[in-house]
Every structure is written in C-alpha cells, then in structure tokens.
Amino acid sequence: MAQIEIEHLSKRFGRRTAVRDLCLEVPARSIYGLLGHNGAGKSTTIGLLLGHLSPDKGKARIGGIPVQRQRFEAIRKVGALFETPAFYPYLSGYRNLEIFGAYSGKIDPRELEEVVALVGLEARIRDRVGGYSHGMRQRLAIAQALLPAPSVLILDEPTDGLDPEGIREMRLLVQRLHRERPLTILLSSHLLGEVEQLCDRIGILHEGKLLFSGDWRRQAAKERRFRFEVDDPERCATALVRGGLAVWANPSGNGNGSRGFLDAELGKGAGMADCVVLLVGHGHRLHGCTPLAPSLEAFYLTVVQQARKEAAGR
C-alpha cells in the first residue's frame, strides 16, 4: 500500500513551472529517494506534500488522507526535515525540541529523551543551539522530526553541508531508524552515492517532470552494460554505436590508440558475443569483457541525458 500518493500535481512560480503533472507513489515502510539536480522540483514537491505550498493542480495524499483538504490529519504522523533546519539559537537543544514538539501535541519527556539518545546528543542537549556545529544541528533536526513518533519521515537534503564522517553518520542513522521503527522515509538528495546505499526505489525529477519512478536496480539490470578492455577505446566505441549494437558507449583511456576501457550499454537483441565479433572483425584488439554492476550514477545520468536529448530534439 502506498503511504504517499501524488496525483497530477503541478505548481508554477510566476512563469516558471516548478512541478509539472507529477504522479508518484511511495510504498509503506520503504526508503524512497527523490533525485534531481538543483531546481529540479524536489523541494517544491516536498513543500506541496507538507502544505507549505498550494498546488495549481492535482492532489497529494499521506496515509490516504488528502493534504490539501485535511492538512492536520494528513501530516499528524509526519516528521519532516525540510530545507535547512533552523532553531532558536539562544535556547537549548532540549527547549527547542519541546517548542517544536508542542505544536504537534503533548510530548512525553521520556520520548523526548529517547529521541535525543537516538541521535546521540545527550551530552550537549542542555547547551544553547547557537554553539552547535552544523552536524549537531542536523541531528537535532532529525530528533525534532521524530517527535512525536511519526509513521512518515520526510528528509530534504539531510546530509547537506555535512563532512564525510557526518554524511556516514546520517546514513547509518537513517538505516537504523528504518530498521527499528515502522517508518516510510522520503529522502530527497543529490548525493547519488548516499541514495544508492539507502534506497531501492527512487524518483528522478528533471525540470519539474518525473522521468523515472520505481526500483532502479531492477530497471538498471534490464539495461545490459559491459566493460570492454580494448586498444583504442574511442574507435571501438564508434564501431559499436555505428554497428547498432550499443545504445551508448563511454570510452576512457589515455587516447592515442592506447589500451583502455569502454563502458557500453547494449541495444535490443545485441549480445556480448556480437560485440566481440564486431570489434575483432574491425581489427580491434580485445583484452577482456565483464558485465557492469548497475550504478545509480550511471542510471541517473542515462535517464537525465535521455530527457535532455528528447528536449533538444523537440
């Protein structure tokens, strides 16, 4: 069952369309990654989901409750970290949690302490937030999002501005939350490596349009990619694409016909053996060939580049 449903949602700011006819479903208890470059419409989508923005068209539902008509009920069990977290710097972390929590209802102090321990802020929670590091503020933001026990967690760029160690800690925290609590997590990020490690299902937004939504690994597995080790990868790439065997081919090497690698996605009906025959037939020296493991980066770039090509062709 989908915990978050978006149907034909559109939003314009002046003459710019931020989100265009967006349809999306986030299954319950999944970690769904919302990907896209800056300005792709990720934050607008989240803003529409939380009721910060009014859509021009379409509707969104959380837990089956329409956000636009019953915002209270819809976001009652939603915890959110939306855009850069902000706190009252002259108050303690604990007091900040009490203040934000009070807008959701009565917060049990034990629950508050539990959440503080979960994000590892026990030692500094009584200190003024003004003295917190960026990473501590991010953790405090997660803590406030977890009060009171949400069933949906919306995290907009939770690793934004964190150092590598902070990014890792944040990833482990999200994984732990997903493991230990019955949470559906919608995670927006442009750190593909992080999303790859956290999410099976993703949505790719580009210029306000959803280009892909679903299990990216399954989709990527359909796109058969191979790495060829050859002499003169540039010429081999041209040969494979012209020969109609590869949809795309990406050569890498030192140039000047020296030995290097060629990553290629095979077209329909083409097999690895066909490629080998073609390359050898054209007189190229082939040293090895291995199937490529699917990577989110490659998948994302293929989808976005395809959209760009289509837009340029129109």
């Binding site: 910060h52 009920e73 976001i75 939603v78 959110a80 939306f82 902000a86 959701s104 209802g105």
Partner: peptide
C-alpha cells in the same frame, strides 16, 4: 523557524 513550525500539524 516558521517553516519548521509549519511542518507540524
């Protein structure tokens, strides 16, 4: 901080 408040019901 207003955005943080309005994230709430």
């Amino acid at each position: 901080t207003m955005r943080m408040i309005l994230n709430r019901p």
